[in-house]
Design a protein around this nucleic acid. Sequence first.
DNA 1: CCAAAAGTGTTGACTTTACACCCATGC
DNA 2: GCATGGGTGTAAAGTCAACACTTTTGG
Lengths: 225, 225
Amino acid sequence: MPAEAIKVTVDTVAMAVQQGQLEILLIKRKHDPFKNLWALPGGFLEDDDSTVEIAAARELLEETNVGDVYLEQLFTFGDRERDPRGRVVTVSYLALLRQDDLELRASTDASGVAWWPVLDLPKLAFDHRRIVEYAHQRLKYKIEYSAAAFSLLPPKFTLRDLQSVYEAVLGRSVDNRNFRKRFLKSGVLQELAETSQEGSYRPARLYSFVEQEFEQLPDRPVFVF
Amino acid sequence: MPAEAIKVTVDTVAMAVQQGQLEILLIKRKHDPFKNLWALPGGFLEDDDSTVEIAAARELLEETNVGDVYLEQLFTFGDRERDPRGRVVTVSYLALLRQDDLELRASTDASGVAWWPVLDLPKLAFDHRRIVEYAHQRLKYKIEYSAAAFSLLPPKFTLRDLQSVYEAVLGRSVDNRNFRKRFLKSGVLQELAETSQEGSYRPARLYSFVEQEFEQLPDRPVFVF
DNA sequence: CCAAAAGTGTTGACTTTACACCCATGC
DNA sequence: GCATGGGTGTAAAGTCAACACTTTTGG
């Protein structure tokens, strides 16, 4: 039976916002096919993985040292010619990382793992470019009706940080008065006593995300700008 | 390598609206496991299938005689215990059928294929219940911002037909004045010269869907009621 | 006192919702 | 002429988009 020959992999588009840019985590391939090209972190589904999502988390941790992360299944790509080695069906995932997780990861290993701006990617292995585009589109939709933005931020953040996440993901600027009004009215932000001091100018108030309040919001699209 | 043992299947949730009810197409299993239980139409991905979607279309046609249908990938389920025969990862699809296709299909074969109301399903094989629930939720979202409803209708339909599709999918009634206003204003409906005569009362105007106009609509959520 | 980013309100246009009666047809 | 589903408008509330200046801080 031909079905025997089919293999299943997982690939993860791990996204973060850094200095106002949306970036993804890539690894440099050490073997053929596509040796020396950049690719998404991922690998084969194994019998030990009780779910496909756990396989994605395992591969991400093994290859990039990133753990404890928001993961969401995106799409399954299985076109016959997508892998020169044979029929490989890949289940793709979106991972959203917080800025402060980023620090840890630089430690991984200097050579094979790097962040790349989504808008300026190198040539990618397999059909990974297509997967990245799909992930980017999904995040653009998702940030408008879900709490996805908060997975891209540390626990305490300023309204400017939050707005920068929206602008990086959507790829355009948004009106700061309307933006603040909307979030402050929504009730999902907890104003903290602390402020953030970044330079020789007015310090910004810090906020945290109140998941409880988010769940009680009326219906989807919540944060459209 | 354990990955060798993994198999890939496709399963399709084929939905249609009939007499105001949302129904799905099920087949009765002739073999173990889950012999005599109802299940989604589907089967193994084969090397001849150039894409996974084509595999889903092929299986749907083979098992239910349904062809030429809107198909959309839903989600990939791959939990270790979902199939007692071994590790089977299934890529699920949503199919939307038109009422008038339904007629043809009754012909298929009296025994093993049947329509079941989504709100009153029999016990299903594998994790197919979960797949159906996922599909139903997706369709509820999708009908509000896409032209999905028109895939559930024949080429000519009344505004009542259209509204019935929304009510069946959403599981609640909607205000008919607002509903009509919205659709007539949107420009996606072409008013036809014909009317539909169903009984001893006023005949209803027939409309057709203008895909072109739909594509030019501003942005998502379009048809929220 | 200067530079830099934080923070703040109003208005007009548009969209959404709620709501009840007359119309056209076949029998 | 009656039963049945087809078809229609308005007003009030709420939401969205556009727009520019003052405040606070460190140096």
